[in-house]
């Protein structure tokens, strides 16, 4: 099992490196090498580490472990074909982890990053409505049932494209350097990550890698269905590159606009789910 975790974290970090590279090339910059995020994680692993004097030490350390724990669980939920409701729960609970990162240090920058994370809760609702829309078609939320449904009826990407677009926006809202990346905006230094350094920052890198891998892999499994693993990795890379293009050409929104746009997406998705509820037998 540990080999799955290591691979997922490393591939996720590689995708994040590719994300930075694509953004840089679109913006006519050379950009860092694609393995830069892996190098960052390794570098932070060997840097000097301590806990700030003002921090709530147990919480400060605990949230790093909880973050790795929940995304490891999410990976196995996806690989085992379990309920995507658990994935939804973990996605929402990641917000609590971000909040914990921000508040535990006592730093105002981290605190504002954590608070922004909580106010961007609007990004979770499209995911929930996506799940509800999928349920109308598949009558189950178990990933293996959803994959079996697609084997008979074809990819959900074609059957329910608005749901796929909503999940695409959900993934976009969790990517760095994107229009919704208000939790890490520069006026907050590094947002909720500001006071976590050394091994703790390496832990955050592992969380980011796992999160990126799980969300993209889940997107492929939910909307395209069963494909060979190598092909799934290729599709994940293609989806990520498309997301990077969006990030490269879109300025970061203000917190208010970010929540407003996500709220509009939610309303559209609620309307779509309402139509499905009305017309589906």
């Amino acid at each position: 099992m540990i080999e799955y975790l290591v691979f997922a974290a490393a591939f996720g970090l590689l995708l994040l490196g590719l994300h930075r590279k694509v953004i840089a090339r679109v913006q006519m910059r050379p950009g860092p090498p694609v393995w830069q995020e892996i190098l960052h994680a390794l570098k932070f692993s060997f840097k000097s580490t301590w806990v700030p004097k003002t921090a709530s030490s147990l919480l400060y350390v605990g949230v790093v472990l909880i973050g790795i724990g929940i995304w490891s669980a999410a990976l196995f939920v996806v690989l085992a074909g379990e309920s995507i409701l658990i994935l939804f729960a973990i996605y929402m609970l990641h917000k609590i982890v971000e909040h914990g990162f921000g508040l535990s240090s006592g730093s105002p920058y981290g605190k504002f990053g954590g608070v922004r994370s909580v106010i961007s809760a609007a990004s979770e609702i499209p995911l929930f409505v996506t799940i509800a829309a999928i349920y109308f078609f598949t009558d189950s939320l178990l990933l293996r049932d959803i994959i079996a449904y697609q084997a008979i009826h074809g990819p959900l990407l074609l059957i329910a494209p608005p749901a796929a677009i909503a999940m695409y926006i959900v993934i976009l809202s969790k990517l760095p350097y994107g229009p919704f990346s208000i939790v890490e905006s520069k006026e907050l230094v590094s947002g909720y990550k500001t006071e976590h350094f050394g091994v703790w920052r390496a832990g955050i890198s592992v969380i980011d890698g796992l999160k990126t891998f799980v969300l993209l892999f889940a997107f492929v499994a939910i909307f395209i269905g069963a494909v060979p693993f190598s092909l799934a990795l290729v599709i994940m890379t293609v989806v990520l590159v498309s997301l990077s293009f969006v990030c490269a050409v879109t300025p970061m929104l203000s917190p208010f606009d970010s929540v407003t746009v996500q709220g509009i997406v939610t309303l559209l998705m609620v309307g779509y789910a309402g139509v499905l509820w009305w017309v589906m037998p």
Partner: peptide
Amino acid sequence: TLFLLALIFTGLAIASRPERQIDI
């Protein structure tokens, strides 16, 4: 999953000392 997370964070609330919040 939800129960265990509630349990873990309750454990943290019991065992953690609060941070000293810094304001500018």
